[in-house]
Amino acid sequence: MSNYYLSLGITAEELDTLKEAFNLYDVRNQGYITIGQFSHIISSLGIDCDPKQVAKMADMNNDNQIDFNEFVLTMFRYLPPHEPAPVCFKNDHIYTDKDIATDEEIMQWFQFFDKDHDGRISQNELEQVMIMFNSRLSKKEIKEMMFTADINRDGFIDYDEFKQLLPPL
């Protein structure tokens, strides 16, 4: 799973910090914190949003608990922006900044995902591509990918959101 976080631009150091923060609230080592605890975390960070709404959105599997993965994905969304790690993954190969794609290549990748060519990638289209790549991602992991990428929360990944997933050119 660490390759998944790295591909999102979360560094190992940031992941360690998030794990420490999560463990401060998961004092019984249950693997989750309550929605109320998470709402308190969001509120205490001074993030300009409704903490209860953020906590509700973070609970991707609707079990009224925030597991570590939900915590990381949500905190990553609301923490101050940082420079993403200069790597990306393709066919289990790690590409560094010297291998970074051009705008034209990114558009071709986007169009590959955008099966119905409506200028946006739906969760269904993302699932189709993951199946084509023989990905073993669960529906929950694909939903988490959508949550991470869909910055404007319209239920789709547009080109600008797609491009932000990739390392800088």
Rank of each mutant, 00 (worst) to 15 (best):
I157R: 06
I66K: 14
E141L: 09
I142V: 11
L137G: 07
E83F: 14
P168C: 03
E83D: 15
D50R: 11
M107E: 06
C88T: 12
L15D: 07
Y5K: 05
I66V: 13
D116C: 01
N62T: 12
T74S: 13
A101V: 08
I33G: 01
N64W: 09
A55K: 02
Q123D: 01
L73T: 02
G46P: 03
N69P: 00
F133I: 11
F156W: 12
R153M: 12
L24K: 12
E127R: 05
I100C: 10
T17R: 14
A85R: 04
I121C: 08
L6I: 13
L8H: 09
D150M: 05
N134M: 10
V87A: 03
H40E: 15
H40W: 04
N29Y: 02
M145P: 00
H82S: 10
M75G: 06
L8N: 10
F112Y: 15
C88H: 15
P168K: 05
N29P: 00
P80E: 03
Y78C: 00
Q164G: 01
L126Q: 06
S7H: 15
F22H: 11
C49K: 05
E20G: 08
L45I: 09
T74I: 07
E20W: 02
I33M: 02
T34Y: 11
D103F: 02
T34Q: 14
P168Q: 03
T74G: 09
M57Q: 11
I157A: 02
E144I: 07
F147A: 09
Y5W: 13
R28S: 14
T17V: 09
D97F: 11
I10S: 04
K98G: 02
H117D: 10
Y32S: 06
F147L: 12
F112C: 09
V129T: 15
F113V: 06
K163G: 00
S43E: 15
F89R: 03
K139E: 01
Y4S: 04
G36N: 06
I66S: 12
I157T: 04
G9R: 12
D160N: 09
N134Q: 09
P84Y: 06
Y25G: 01
T74Y: 15
T17K: 14
Y32C: 01
